[in-house]
Design a protein around this nucleic acid. Structure first.
Lengths: 147, 147
DNA sequence: CAGTGTCACTTGCAAAATGGAAGTGACATA
DNA sequence: TATGTCACTTCCATTTTGCAAGTGACACTG
């Protein structure tokens, strides 16, 4: 994983730009954890069911921070912890995340999200509208499924 | 890269399902080449400016076909070539692709797509509407930028 | 306020994926 | 028939991933 901002980019195609930043198996899962479950700390991300390795998680968090997707701040309550939150650039990934969900709900028969009929129905009606609502929700500290 | 349909999936989260299929640096570039440039053959994909290695391209094409995103058929005109086209499952990736473009147009100052002001404006107005139009266009053999 | 636990990492190493270069065989073209 | 093109495959070096085992800073407990 590259760590500097060198001009070693494959192209300036916009699709490619996105893929170079979050085109891997883990980055969008971190964003998902924030948006859907309200996770904020390294330890919480680590507990996700997909089972990221500790070093991979650390390198992804650092890279996403470097790319301006996440911002990191010390936890006021516990000096050992840092709190990761989405920047505006990170919040703008929400439409992509939601479209992936729409796609999977349609094409993966085993998708868990199929149980959330009302949510999927709203997404299908207008992803753009739901995106805006979710963006505002997360911006103000909330998350989609707060249990 | 796995090649069989074994139940070695990390989770049934819908975000994860998508990432396991197209969460890498190349798959969506292939879809882009079809949707935007109307590419259809191995040789055409290979020429893309990002420079895929031949073996990687071959393995991605095979995997995407196996996952039902692409379908492959012998070229009627030239017996050496195969034509790859998007299935309905593949066409349904178009909204995701367009949202990535919207995101990059906003956040990458060097993005090429910023030059296509009219296109980006239409995307921002209604990604969902443009998606439907593009899906229909590609389904009937067209592509976005036919030059 | 020493001892133990928790937390966010880092390090080392094996395994897997990637990438470049050089084939290979089927088919097209001259 | 000879040569070129096309879609791959193979080989190998390099990079990335993933697991396991630390490590140091801070929190909590008696």
């Amino acid at each position: 994983m590259k760590t500097t901002c060198k001009e070693d980019v494959r192209s300036h195609c916009s699709v490619n730009y996105g893929l170079e930043i979050f085109g891997d198996k883990w980055s969008l899962l971190i964003v998902r954890d924030i948006v859907f479950a309200g996770k904020k700390t390294y330890g919480e991300f680590l507990k996700s069911e997909e089972g990221v390795a500790t070093n991979i998680l650390a390198s992804r968090l650092a890279f996403l921070e470097e790319q301006g997707i996440l911002s990191k701040a010390p936890s006021p309550a516990d000096g050992r912890k840092d709190l990761y939150t989405l920047t505006e650039k990170g919040l703008d990934l929400i439409p992509i995340l939601l479209d992936i969900i729409v796609w999977s709900a349609k094409h993966d028969p085993k998708s868990n999200v199929r149980r959330r009929k009302e949510f999927v129905a709203r997404l299908n009606r207008s992803t753009q509208k739901v995106s805006e609502e979710v963006k505002e929700l997360v911006r103000s500290g909330g998350c989609i499924f707060s249990q």
